[in-house]
Amino acid sequence: MSTPAQTATSTRAVAFSLYRSLLRTSRQFTAYNFREYALRRTRDGFRDHKAESDPRAIEDFLTKAEKELSMLKRQTAVSQMYQFNEQVVESKHSRPHRRISTA
C-alpha cells in the first residue's frame, strides 16, 4: 500500500501529464476559435482546481479531464479532415501543421 504522501505525488504527476496532453491535443484543432477555446478552457479548468484537496473531487476532475482528452483526440482529427482558410486574426505559427500526430 502506498502512503498518502506517495498517492498525492502520483496524483500530481497524473494531473500534470493529463494537463500537458490536453494542451498538446487542443493545439491540433485547425479551426482557430475551437483551438483557442480548448486551450483557454483547459488552462482555466486546471487553474480553478489547483488548490483542490478533497481526494474525491480530484478524482472526479481527473476522470472528466480524461474523457475530455479522448473527445479532443477524435474532434481534432475531424477538424483536420475539414480544413478551412485562416481566420483574419489567426497567426500562421499557432496553426497545427497539416499532419495528425501519431503520438
Binding site: M81, N85, V88
Partner: peptide
Amino acid sequence: DESTAEILQNAELLDSEKRPI
C-alpha cells in the same frame, strides 16, 4: 502515415481568402 497525409492534403479548402471573424 503517408495515406493519412495524402488525404489531409486533399482535404477541401473552402474559399481562397482569409475567413472573417
